[in-house]
Design a protein around this nucleic acid. Structure first.
Lengths: 340, 340
DNA sequence: GGTATTTTCGAAAACGTTTTCGGTGCGAAA
DNA sequence: TTTCGCACCGAAAACGTTTTCGAAAATACC
């Protein structure tokens, strides 16, 4: 009871392998009669083409690779959700790899995927990434490649991103519109591009509404954790008791801030308003519920795959393609933590 | 600038393809001199075997498939984390598929993975699954296959599970040990095995401590959502104002319960204690923090892969293997919501 | 009936590897 | 000198498909 092959079908039907292959792919140069006979038998034998052979012959694997820092992260798992769904629609399979925020890993993953001859790669950089030799190598080899979220600006590849600066500006403006006049910012680590951009957006937001920028109101995360949120909340209250708004790099940190305020009986939003970033699920569930910036993670996955598909098609037809950048819209979500 | 092949190496070295292949795999019947020459040149040309050809020849893909109901779920993404990590150690790649809780999807995913000739499949059933024809087909074909979490008991495959009954019993006993005497249970849907088992554990827990079981204290979820938690919390207070403990099918529901109590000024844990299941991240972050049952999700992934590996090896050597069941330990995590 | 055209088919090469089996050449044993 | 064993190498088949190109058969046209 082995897998059916073209050869088997050909032999039992007394025709050549060539004809069977053509019949199955509905080539014009095969008569309706034989085409039907082949289809029927193939169906009966549950014939499915051996993908190894197809791959070897066509040099396509119909498989793409995805490398992300951490799978267990609402944002990333929902991006992958989008990628997998869109890939499936187009007959592609998705191989997942985790860099665990390490560049060394990242490199070996890329190697592995190339050995597997995936048709393309989509990837979000690890925090550690500064060396991008392995990525340049991808471009040099002409491997279809798109970056999303944590990207390297210098790399001339297709990208899917949000406008972090604009989103941060809007978040800051939102706090101001709710009456805040002294706003602190808990920012992300120094290296990643999106931490930088969100900080700049915060600064611009203040300036736009004629609030002077005060560097002492900016606190820098290293681990971007719940605990850091709590620590910085305490610090902020100690340093600047009159702060009435906080913009946090991400919801996780904001939730830490809220936890500290809850424990110390500081009223949110009455005394101080808080806004996060990314719209994690828990933000709508916590008390008070957390205002935040919605990042269209699923759509980012969809967009990333489609961009990759364009590149893969271009490569198949030996066209070169100018890398594109897709920038998706974000949206302020108002909840209790910033009610006026 | 194409990929290097055995043929190229053979030609530039003036030897046969066979010898090159053997040299690279360190066969004994090739002299040290040629072996070294081949290795050097291969390294220099960055030779990597074409996996399509290898697969075709060896009939192995060194790739496994994973089918889960939802990727965007802390439990599942961390199981996958475990699978991917363990697979990588053993040189396997992982293809992820989502059934989105639909049996039809589930079937087509299985098809797809079989067409791709994955070496094995690990899978958690969708809630909808009652028809397991497609799974039996897997066993019939001898495809290495392991189930985890939501399993079909009737199917004679390897499995990785927790002891839901025991865990639920312990959770109930925990509430009792904290002084609860009237304990409600918000249970999962009627079909899935783990919902049934947790309900039975709850019942046994009561009986063990001589608390009579009262069916009117059991509430049945359909969507297992945050909102349902809130609704049932209200209902419970209305039906039984003297309830002093609630055991919830999962943390998400428990968090809904806590939210309702927070909004209505019902003190947890003073007036009523709450325990969840699964130890989602948000449980430690919410106020009051939620006691729960830790499910070793990452380890389940590791165990699932290792079981699969055993089956794959058995198949390679044409041994048949008796399916095994791995049962992992759970652990009560005490937090504020059940403090005495 | 002969020629031109269309329809239908198949031989064969190619993709890159792995492995079996046999063949050299050479030194040692008889 | 012959024979045997050993170390080293290579020819060739096989995995299952796709596609090119030419051939044969059937049909059309004059």
């Amino acid at each position: 009871m082995k897998e059916a092959t073209l050869k088997q079908i050909a032999e039992t039907l007394g025709i050549s392998i060539t004809t069977v292959s053509k019949a199955l792919k509905n080539y014009p140069d095969v008569s309706d009669k034989t085409r039907k006979a082949v289809h029927d038998l193939a169906h009966q034998l549950q014939y499915t083409p051996n993908s190894f052979a197809v791959n070897l012959r066509t040099k396509e694997s119909k498989t793409i690779g995805v490398i992300i820092p951490e799978l267990v992260h609402h944002f990333f798992s929902s991006v992958i959700d989008g990628i997998v769904a869109e890939a499936e629609k187009n007959g592609y399979l998705v191989i997942i790899q985790q860099s665990s925020e390490s560049v060394v890993m990242e490199k070996s993953q890329v190697e592995l995927l190339l050995n597997k001859r995936v048709d393309g790669i989509v990837m979000s950089l690890s925090n550690e990434s500064n060396d991008d030799e392995h990525l340049k190598e991808l471009l040099r080899r002409g491997v279809p490649f798109v970056q999303f979220d944590k990207i390297s600006k210098l790399l001339n590849s297709s990208k899917v991103i949000i406008d972090d600066q604009k989103a941060a500006l809007e978040a800051t403006a939102h706090l101001i519109s709710k009456g805040c006049t002294k706003i602190a910012h808990i920012r992300g680590p120094v290296n990643p591009q999106n931490a930088i951009d969100r900080f700049l957006g915060y600064k611009k937001g203040l300036e736009k509404h004629d609030i002077p920028f005060d560097p002492s109101l900016v606190y820098t995360c290293s681990r971007v954790s719940f605990e850091e949120g709590k620590e910085f909340a305490a610090q902020i209250i100690k340093d600047h008791p009159d702060v009435d708004g906080i913009f946090c790099i991400t919801d996780l940190v904001a939730v830490g801030v809220l936890a500290y305020f809850n424990e110390n009986n500081i009223k949110v939003p009455q005394q101080i308003k808080v806004i996060g970033f990314s719209n994690w699920f828990m933000s709508q569930v916590i008390t008070p519920s957390l205002s935040t910036v919605e990042q269209p993670s699923y759509d980012m996955g969809v967009a990333a795959f489609n961009l990759l598909l364009e590149e893969m098609n271009a490569r198949k037809e030996n066209r070169s393609m100018e890398p594109k950048t897709v920038r998706l819209e974000t949206q302020i979500i108002e909840r209790e933590s910033t009610r006026a």
